[in-house]
Design a protein around this nucleic acid. Structure first.
Length: 556
RNA sequence: GCGCCCGUAGCUCAAUUGGAUAGAGCGCCGGACUUCGAAUCCGUAGGUUGCAGGUUCGAGUCCUGCCGGGCGCGCCA
């Protein structure tokens, strides 16, 4: 049991001893101000409303009860509006280190998920071109959310849905055919609403290499489409893999068409009296479920809209019986959510099961120039370029530093500059620095066998700097829990910055005061204790960084 | 015009989902390396949280109305 859980349960027991019904979550926090104790809780104020008693009275009774928790709780105080401040036995705090050392990469795991099955769908960009910076935030955030949920006890699957059907695919095939013919010396224009990107020239080259000029008179657009789609999907998969973004399932729209799933779901909607004909088209009654207007499922020319197969897809998700579905949308698609949720209700499914996250837009700032990336407009920086010039650590950390619902200005110069506003190096440097301490210890001939550290007397860690680090380490499971609840990876990056800051602070103290040094050849006992602390720190940094898939180099 | 998101220090952003004295980084200024890595640390300055009301023990956070920015509002995907 984690320290924060221990404290929470002690408070819970105290309240139930007062014969109060607890229907409030007990939240504890580490106060900013030292005089407010190691932990504090606002539970008395929360209960005040329900019990119709003054918060301070409740706080005082809780403090009274907490006298019985003496071994762990040193002191409890009721204060001003109704906070209960707690001072914890130093041994309880330092014991966190041994807990971390023994749990190692498992430390920080929490069980908010309780094995529930969650499907996270993200990126889901169409295979009509390479992924660009606009998709990048979605990819990095979605992937990190999946990692966090997994660590928080959910059974997570990640899915990428790609639209490889419809008119746009025909345009892609036609565009490739034009590029192919151009390479063979023909004067063939790219179709009006085709794809003009250079990447199709590269794919056309591959096609020439493979088929020579045998397709010179071919009108088999489907073949060109398939060839382009395969190449683009492959490059998308490579880009994502290099960005350390993983998927369990790749789901294709055309599969639903081929299997008749789209027609099936349309029939079902008709049967449920949720669809009607008007102006030669088939409409879905999404207004019945709060949408602004009804939406077309089948156009008057017989083609299906984007929505129709997507409904079939989501029906399929529901049929796979996940406990929760998460969709990660780009900011320019938020208007789509009400109609998707409406469609789900039209099929009789529970819309609560589907949680839609909206990741706000990314603007690229390069020097004085700024460019926006709504999906439709051209001119973009690709993920490939970002990876080649910045590396995945920088790209990932940068996109995870902000809350998902605030717009993000990606400052290219700043990202390229290897320090300044880019704290990935700050965090990594702390880790590398901590590693050097073990090298130093080795040079000083201090025996670093594991038992020396694991038997360390951590009660020797009484410096305020040490206590501060340990308290932050103790907080990690809470950070994971909260990040999983609100689905905000930003919690992890923010935590890492605070944690490593505490370490840098501690380390620097040793450069000023020799007694504060971590490696002390004349005092092996204290050295072991301090190295145990550093080891615990390393574990937590690694565990946290793995949640956002950023590396922890030992040297930099 | 309607809907969603945002508005916090000069800049980029936090604020534990209603809690204590609104915090960091960058930038400015001033300090700290003969000693575990100075990609670091310490300090100073910087605020009517866009504006105006409201809800309550308590509001940056919630409700209403304005102002400003972004994104949507298709028989596109």
């Amino acid at each position: 049991m984690y320290l924060s859980e221990k404290v929470t349960s002690i408070i819970r027991r105290a309240i139930s001893n007062l014969n109060q019904i607890i229907d409030t979550d007990i939240e504890i926090e580490v106060p900013r101000i030292k005089d407010f104790g190691d932990f504090s809780t606002n539970v008395a104020m929360k209960l005040a409303k329900k019990l119709h008693q003054p918060p301070m009275d409740i706080a005082r009774s809780i403090v009274e009860e907490l006298q019985q928790a003496k071994p762990i709780i040193l002191k409890a105080e009721a204060v001003k509006p109704g906070f209960v401040n707690l001072w914890i036995s130093p041994n309880e705090i330092t014991n966190v280190i041994h807990q971390i050392l023994s749990e190692a990469e498992e430390y920080g795991r929490v069980n908010v998920g309780n094995g529930k099955r969650v499907l996270v769908e993200f990126v889901s960009a169409n295979p009509t071109g390479p992924l660009h910076i606009g998709h990048c935030r979605n990819a990095v955030v979605g992937d990190s959310i999946a990692r966090i949920l997994k660590f928080a006890g959910f059974n997570v699957e990640r899915e990428y849905y790609f639209n490889d059907a419809g008119a746009q695919m025909q345009n892609l095939g036609k565009s490739l055919r034009a590029r192919y013919l151009q390479l063979l010396g023909k004067d063939e224009p790219i179709p009006e609403d085709g794809y003009y990107g250079e990447y199709l020239v590269d794919i056309a080259r591959a096609l020439v290499a493979e088929k020579k000029d045998s397709l010179l008179h071919s009108n088999d657009i489907d073949f060109f489409t398939a060839f382009a789609t395969k190449h683009i999907l492959d490059s998308i998969k490579t880009d994502l893999a290099d960005l350390k973004v993983e998927f369990d399932h790749w789901v294709s729209e055309s599969w639903f068409h081929r299997q008749g799933k789209v027609d099936e779901v349309i029939d079902e909607l008709k049967r449920r009296n949720m669809a009607y004909e008007k102006d030669g088209a088939l409409w879905l009654k999404t207004t019945q479920f709060g949408d602004e207007k009804d939406r077309v499922l089948v156009k008057s020319n017989g083609e299906k809209t984007y929505l129709a197969p997507d409904i079939a897809y989501h029906k399929n998700k529901y049929e796979r019986h996940y406990d929760q579905l998460i969709n990660v949308f780009g900011g320019d698609h938020h208007g789509y959510i009400p109609r998707l949720k409406a469609a789900i209700q039209a099929l009789g499914y529970d819309p609560q099961k589907l949680r839609c996250l909206v990741i706000q837009m990314v603007t690229l700032k390069k020097g004085e120039e700024t460019m926006r990336f709504s999906k439709r407009k051209g001119g973009f920086i690709t993920i490939r370029e970002m990876l080649d010039e910045l590396g995945s650590d920088v790209v990932r950390f940068f996109f995870l530093m902000r809350t998902i619902d605030s717009q993000l200005v990606f400052d290219w110069e700043l990202a390229k500059d290897t320090s300044i506003d880019n704290p990935v190096y700050y965090v990594q440097y702390a880790y590398a620095r901590s590693c050097s301490l073990f090298k130093k210890a080795q040079e000083e001939k201090i025996n670093l066998n594991l038992s020396g550290i694991s038997q360390a007397n951590v009660n020797l860690l009484t410096l305020p700097e040490e206590q501060s680090i340990i308290k932050h380490l103790a907080l990690f499971p809470d950070v994971v829990r909260r990040a999983a609840e609100v689905l905000e990876p930003q919690f992890i990056t923010a935590y890492l910055r605070v944690l490593t800051s505490a370490f840098h602070n501690y380390f620097t103290a040793g450069t000023k005061n020799p007694e504060y040094r971590i490696v002390l050849p004349d005092n092996p006992e204290l050295t072991y204790a301090r190295l145990a602390l550093v080891r615990a720190l390393q574990i937590v940094i690694r565990n946290a960084m793995s949640l956002i898939s950023v590396s922890t180099p030992e040297k930099m």
